[in-house]
Computed example of a mutant assay.
Amino acid sequence: MEQKTRVASWTVFYKKLAKNKAAMAGGIIVIFVAILAIIAPLIAPYEPTHIEMAKKLQGPSSEHWLGTDDKGRDILSRLLYGSRVSLTVGLLSTLLGAAVGILFGIIAGYYGKWIDSLIMRICDVLLAFPGILLALAIVSVLGASTTNVIIAVAFFAVPTFARIVRGSTLSVKKLEYIDAIRAMGSNDFRIIFKHILPNIVSPIIVQATLYIASAIITASALSFLGLGTQPPTPEWGTMLAQGRSYIAQAPHLTLFPGLVILIVVIGFNLFGDGLRDALDPKTKK
C-alpha cells in the first residue's frame, strides 16, 4: 500500500513537472551538460592542455569547431573538460553547504530558544555580505585552488539553507502526529531524522537546484579573478579571463565560454523553478 502511494505521488509530480515546458527544457539542458561532462574524455577531439602555438587564435573551422585560444589549444575540448570542473564545484559546494545548513536549521527550528537565536543571528551576519564578496574573502585567506573555491561557495550556502530548513521545521514540529510520536517515547534524534527531515525535503531540493546555478557563477567569477581553478586546468571562468586580452582580435575566446555559462545557469534556474511549482502542494494538479 505504501509503495503504491509513493508511485502515485511520483506520477502526480512528473505530470505537474511535464506541464511546465520551461522546466522540461531546463532539465534537458542540465542532463545534456552532465552527460557531456561525464563522457568528455571520449568525445573531446584534442587534449585540453595540448599547446600548438602555430595554430593560436584561429577561428572556428572544420579542424577546430570552436577555434583555438592564445596557446593553440582547442576551445571545444577545453569547454568539455571545463564542464567537469564547473559542475563538480557547483554540486560539491551545494551538497556541503546544504548538509551544514540543514543541520543548523533543523536544530534551530526544533529546539528554539537561545540556540535558535544564536544560529539565526550568525546567519543574519553572513547574509549581510554579498555572496561573491564573502567568497573572495575566504579564498583570499585560504589560497587559490578548486578545493578552496568549493569551501568558499559552500560557506555562503549555509545560512540560506539554514533559514529555509528552520522555517519548514517550525511548521512540521507543530503537527499533532509529532506530539503523538513524542508521547510514545521517541527520542529527539528519531523525531528529527525520521519524521521531520523527510517532510521538509521538497524546499531543500528546490533550493539546492537553484543554488547550483549561483555556485557555478560564483566559481567562474573567482576563477576569472585568478582566485579559483588555476591554469592550465580548463575552467569556464579561467577561459573567460584568458580571452579578455584578445576580445577584439579573437572574440570567440570569450564568446563560447560565456555562452556555455549562460546556457547552463539558465538551465538550472528553469529546472529549479519547475521543481518548486511541481513540489508545491498548493499547485493545482
Rank of each mutant, 00 (worst) to 15 (best):
Y110R: 07
I191D: 04
P41T: 11
P45I: 05
I43K: 03
T147I: 10
Q58T: 07
H64M: 04
M24Y: 02
G258D: 10
R163G: 08
R84D: 11
I51Q: 15
Y81A: 06
A44W: 05
F271S: 14
H252V: 05
V141P: 00
V165F: 05
L91W: 00
L127C: 07
T233A: 14
F32A: 15
T49E: 12
M24R: 00
I43V: 15
I263L: 14
P48M: 07
I212K: 05
L142A: 09
G272E: 07
V158F: 05
E2Q: 14
L91R: 00
L142F: 02
M120V: 09
Q3D: 06
N148Q: 04
I178D: 10
S223K: 05
N20L: 07
M239C: 08
I181L: 15
L80P: 01
A250Y: 05
L80K: 04
A99E: 01
K282Y: 08
S245C: 00
L170H: 02
L175R: 14
I196F: 07
I28A: 15
H252W: 15
P232E: 07
N148M: 09
G131W: 03
F32G: 10
N199S: 14
A278L: 04
G112R: 05
F13M: 10
Y246I: 01
F268E: 01
P234F: 01
T147R: 08
G267N: 05
I150R: 04
R84I: 12
A128P: 12
S145W: 06
F156P: 00
L253M: 14
L253R: 00
I191E: 01
I35C: 02
T68P: 10
L36S: 01
D74G: 12
G143F: 08
A44L: 10
E235C: 13
L142M: 13
L127S: 11
V158D: 00
I35N: 03
Y111H: 11
A137N: 04
Q230L: 07
I151Y: 07
A162T: 02
G185K: 06
A25F: 12
I266G: 09
E47L: 13
I43Q: 08
P48S: 06
L134C: 08
L87F: 09
S86M: 04
I266K: 00
S220D: 15
A23Y: 01
L225G: 10
T147P: 00
R78K: 03
Q242H: 09
F161A: 03
S83N: 03
F224G: 08
